[in-house]
């Protein structure tokens, strides 16, 4: 358990260093939903190349690290209906809120952004209630 916390801290620092590199290097906020969403809805057309390269890094490094550390089991549910509903909610929600765990959470809270903190409170509360409802009451996850 404690080893997981240490890995969490180390991994978290790498995430923060990525955000710092993106901010100091390119002057941009490292928000995963914004970077992906800008490609999907065309709003990030002018910066499409750097978005794609960024995502190639996000996808590629786990591929390179898997042989060194062994695969991480995602424990993802095999209930496809749950995954479709969850994916739609995550996609719509992050774009309407203009940010997700990385943009509002990591990048927002670290600059003491009120919007980032409010968003984080609401998605954690909603996430907690979602787990209570779908796991403990309905038993679907």
């Amino acid at each position: 358990m404690e080893m997981d916390w240490i890995m969490g801290l180390i991994g978290g620092m790498l995430i923060g260093l990525g955000g710092a590199a993106y901010l100091i290097g390119n002057g941009r906020i490292m928000g995963a939903s914004g970077i992906i969403g800008g490609l999907v809805d065309g709003s990030g057309h002018s910066t499409a190349a750097e978005r794609i390269v960024f995502l190639a890094g996000v996808l590629g490094l786990p591929i390179l690290l898997t042989p060194l550390f062994g695969g991480v089991d995602t424990h993802i549910t095999d209930n496809m209906l749950v995954l479709v509903v969850a994916g739609l909610f995550v996609g719509v929600g992050t774009r309407i809120a203009n940010g997700c765990t990385s943009g509002h959470g990591v990048c927002g809270i670290s600059r003491l952004s009120l919007r980032g903190m409010v968003a984080t409170v609401f998605y954690i509360l909603a996430g907690g209630l979602s787990v209570v409802l779908f796991r403990h009451i309905l038993g679907v996850i």
Binding site: V82, V85, A86, G87, L88, F89, V90, G91, V92, G93, T94, R95, I96, A97, N98, C100, T101, H104, V118, A119, T120, F122, Y123, I124, L125, A126, G127, G128, L129, S130, V131, F134, I141
Partner: peptide, 11 residues
């Protein structure tokens, strides 16, 4: 948006 995201995130 954050509430919708949170629901999907938990799910």
């Amino acid at each position: 948006g954050s509430v919708l995201f949170g629901i999907g995130w938990g799910l």
